[in-house]
């Protein structure tokens, strides 16, 4: 049987409401699920993937490390390998050393070399990304190195006493300041 006008009209408005609800749900999916997906991606990359990567890197001077194996380097004017089977990158844009007074940026190749020399003295150093843990002298032992290929690497001296870290970096910073 045909609908009465009242039923016809009610059906039109009912379908309108159903469609509006459907659109709201679609909008909600875009509004809430998309950011959720981004958050999950960030969470997994930070909490799951990054630690795996960090565990994989045995040290800043590991010959398997991309930074040190020269893959990202043009090898022009290579710094010597100091008698060992290591090629040090020179394609470094700048490094940042975090100090209590704030960050200090060095772009001189010699400065970079100094940092590597210093780090090499401590084989327990490893690549680190993230905030430096609280220590009495805090930020001294976090070094950020930006390569010219756009990658950013942090170096953290671990398993060292605060004194070793402080004295080492003070020496490093002093040497840089005098250049």
């Amino acid at each position: 049987m045909r609908r009465s006008f009242e039923d016809f009209s009610a059906e039109v408005f009912r379908r309108r409401d159903v469609e509006i609800e459907k659109r709201k749900k679609q909008r909600a999916i875009i509004t809430y699920l998309a950011p959720l997906a981004i958050c999950l991606t960030l969470f997994f990359s930070t909490v799951v993937v990054m630690p795996q990567l960090l565990k994989g890197g045995s040290g800043a001077f590991d010959s398997d490390d991309d930074i040190m194996d020269g893959e990202n380097s043009d090898n022009q004017g290579d710094v010597t390998d100091k008698g060992e089977d290591k090629i040090y990158p020179i394609a470094i844009s700048y490094i940042t050393v975090y100090t209590e007074q704030g960050r200090r940026v060095y772009s001189n190749a010699e400065d970079v070399w100094d940092v590597f020399l210093y780090v090499e003295d401590y084989p327990d150093a490893f690549i680190y990304s993230g905030e430096a843990p609280d220590t009495p002298m805090g930020a001294y032992y976090k070094v950020m190195v930006c390569l010219r290929d756009g990658t950013v690497h942090y170096y953290l001296l671990d398993n060292l006493t605060d004194d070793e870290i402080v004295s080492g970096f003070e020496h490093l910073l002093d040497s840089m300041d005098t250049q």
């Binding site: 045909r2 016809f8 059906e11 039109v12 379908r15 309108r16 469609e19």
Partner: peptide, 18 residues
Amino acid sequence: DIMTAEDIAIDVFTYLLL
């Protein structure tokens, strides 16, 4: 088919509303 026609007419008005 009148029922189908009515159903389509409802869709037309719903489209206009939306």
